[in-house]
C-alpha cells in the first residue's frame, strides 16, 4: 500500500500543511503580523515540554500553549504595548522557557532538533490523520468566515458598520493559527512554520488581483514547494524541512524578479504592489 511508503506519507503531510497555511498566511501578510506567527510557533516548544511532562499527545500540548500565547498577545496589544516589542519579548522568552523546561525532563530523551526543524520523513499514519484533520478544520474555519475576516482586515470601523466584530474575527484567525502550528510542528518544525505561512503568500502577491486568487496561488506554491523540496532533499540527502523552505524561498526570489522585469518591460499589470 502507498501509505506504507515513507516518501508518500511525507508528501501527503507536506501537502496538508501547505494547504492550511496558504489562506492563513495571506491574512498574516495582509495584517502585517508576520511576527505573530513566529511568536506562536516559538511558544510551541514550551507546549512540547509540557505534553512530555504530562504525557499527553504533543499535538494537544502545543495547541494549548500556542492558543494561550496568541490570546495573551492579542489582549496585551490593545493595552498600549507596541506590537513588535511585545512579540519580540513573548517569542523569545517562550522559546527560552520551553528549552529550559525540556532540560529538566529527566529520563526522557527527546530529540529537540526534531521539533525545531521538523522530521517530515518520520510522519506516521496517525500523524497524517492529525495533520489532515487540522488542515480541514482550519480551511473550514477560514472559508466560513472569509468575507468577515477580509472586511475586518481592511478596516475595523467598516466591519463594525456592517455588523462584523473585528475582535471576534481576530480571535478566529488566532485559533486557526494555533491549530496550524500544532499540526505543522512535526512536519516543518517550530523554526520553519512561520516561513511556510508567509513565503508562499508573499510569492503569490505580485500575480494576484483578488484576495481569493492570492490564497489559491499561495496554496499551489506551497504544495509544489513541498513536493519539490521533498524530492530535492532525497536526492541531495539534505534535511527535508529546511530544504522545502529553501525551495519556496527560491520561488519567492523568482517571483520578485519576474515581477520587476515584467513591470519594467511590459508596462505590467495593475495588480501588484505600488513601488
Amino acid at each position: 500500500m502507498m501509505l506504507d511508503d515513507f516518501m508518500f506519507r511525507a508528501a501527503l503531510a507536506g501537502l496538508g500543511v501547505a494547504l492550511a497555511a496558504a489562506p492563513l498566511g495571506c491574512f498574516i501578510v495582509w495584517r502585517r503580523m508576520a511576527y505573530f506567527g513566529d511568536a506562536t510557533a516559538h511558544a510551541a516548544v514550551l507546549g512540547v515540554a509540557l505534553s512530555l511532562t504530562l504525557s499527553t499527545p504533543i499535538f494537544a500540548g502545543v495547541l494549548v500553549v500556542s492558543l494561550l500565547m496568541a490570546i495573551i498577545v492579542s489582549t496585551l496589544s490593545g493595552r498600549g504595548y507596541a506590537m513588535d516589542t511585545l512579540l519580540g519579548v513573548m517569542a523569545h522568552s517562550a522559546l527560552a522557557v520551553g528549552l529550559v523546561a525540556v532540560s529538566f525532563l529527566s529520563g526522557v530523551r527527546i530529540d529537540l532538533m526534531a521539533y525545531l526543524f521538523g522530521d517530515i520523513l518520520a510522519v506516521g499514519k496517525t500523524d497524517l490523520i492529525v495533520i489532515w484533520g487540522g488542515a480541514a478544520l482550519v480551511l473550514a474555519l477560514v472559508g466560513w468566515r472569509w468575507s468577515a475576516l477580509l472586511l475586518a482586515t481592511l478596516n475595523p470601523d467598516l466591519a463594525h458598520a456592517s455588523g462584523v466584530s473585528p475582535k471576534r474575527e481576530q480571535l478566529i484567525l488566532t485559533v486557526a493559527l494555533a491549530i496550524v502550528v500544532a499540526v505543522a510542528i512535526k512536519v516543518v518544525g517550530v523554526l520553519l512554520i512561520a516561513a511556510m505561512l508567509i513565503i508562499p503568500a508573499a510569492t503569490a502577491r505580485p500575480f494576484s488581483k483578488t484576495p481569493e486568487s492570492m490564497a489559491f496561488m499561495a496554496a499551489i506554491i506551497g504544495c509544489s514547494a513541498s513536493v519539490i523540496g521533498l524530492k530535492t532533499s532525497y536526492a541531495l540527502d539534505s534535511p527535508t524541512g529546511p530544504t522545502i523552505v529553501c525551495v519556496v524561498a527560491l520561488m519567492f526570489i523568482a517571483s520578485s524578479i519576474l515581477w520587476k522585469v515584467s513591470r519594467s518591460f511590459g508596462g505590467g499589470e495593475p495588480a501588484g504592489p505600488a513601488s
Binding site: V29, L154, S162
Partner: peptide
C-alpha cells in the same frame, strides 16, 4: 499586500 478589485471590495461582506 492585499490585492483587491473594486468589484470585490463592493462585495464585502
Amino acid at each position: 499586500t492585499l490585492p483587491m478589485t473594486v468589484r470585490r471590495f463592493m462585495s464585502l461582506p
